[in-house]
């Protein structure tokens, strides 16, 4: 496939009187790891949510593989999340009642896989990310680093085209954060998934192929080494 995988074109979005996005544009190439950097309130998470079809911009458009994403129905966007996207958030993207193994197996089951097969694959992902020992634990019973590794495994297991990661290491110390990032980006690159990474930490952004900086709802400059 040629051309960008995901395009945001002049997005505007306001929450009441608060302007979150004011003309943000960005492109994500297939297989690219892109970091969205910026201070708190710069609109980087909002941009990620718009790119993932979770939020709908007031103005501007989001295109995924050449077609509009922002005007699709909730049903269609949910299908995209199921089949094409993966997510790693700072907190709570795991289902609190399910074990690590069941959480990781969930995306496969949602797309119709049998439980046994899904769990087998989930176990190998947990092993790959070095958290096979927490397979039977629930999110509340794991450390932050283990939880984020499980979340990474769950985001990648379905072989998504894009993984959206919002401050994936926000709750971790710097060493743990780097280890998670290392494993996350390596695994994503291995299977050719693009990654949209929101962070305010430059060392985390350094794991990306490219960084863009948001301030006041728009990008500060065009990419320097595109």
């Amino acid at each position: 496939m040629t051309g960008p995988l995901l395009v945001a074109d002049d997005l505007h979005l306001a929450f009441g009187p608060t302007r979150a996005l004011a003309g943000a544009s960005v492109e994500v190439a297939p297989g690219e790891v892109l970091a969205l950097l910026g201070p708190s309130g710069s609109g980087k998470s909002t941009l990620l949510h718009c790119l993932a079809g979770i939020l709908t911009p007031d103005r501007g458009e989001v295109r995924y593989r050449g077609t509009r994403l922002d005007d699709r129905s909730d049903e269609a966007r949910s299908r995209l999340r199921r089949n094409d996207f993966g997510f790693v958030f700072q907190f709570g993207s795991l289902v609190p009642e399910l074990t690590a193994l069941a959480n990781v197996a969930l995306p496969l089951q949602l797309t119709g896989a049998r439980r046994r097969a899904a769990e087998e694959q989930a176990r190998s992902w947990l092993e790959r990310l070095g958290v096979a020992d927490v397979a039977g634990k629930r999110p509340g019973e794991m450390s932050g680093g283990q939880g984020q590794r499980v979340a990474v495994a769950r985001a990648l297991i379905g072989g998504p085209r894009v993984v959206f990661a919002d401050e994936p290491t926000g709750a971790l110390d710097s060493l743990n954060g780097e280890l998670v990032m290392e494993e996350f980006t390596a695994a994503a690159r291995d299977q050719g998934s693009s990654v949209v990474l929101v962070t305010h930490e430059t060392r985390v952004a350094a794991y990306a192929d490219r960084s863009v900086v948001l301030r006041d709802g728009r990008l500060t400059a065009a990419p320097a080494w595109a």
């Binding site: 909730d74 995209l80 089949n83 289902v95 009642e97």
Partner: peptide, 19 residues
Amino acid sequence: AARERRLAALRLLGFSARH
């Protein structure tokens, strides 16, 4: 809160709002 976290996590995994 637990139910809401569960529902939100399921939405993220591709459940529609109706679902």
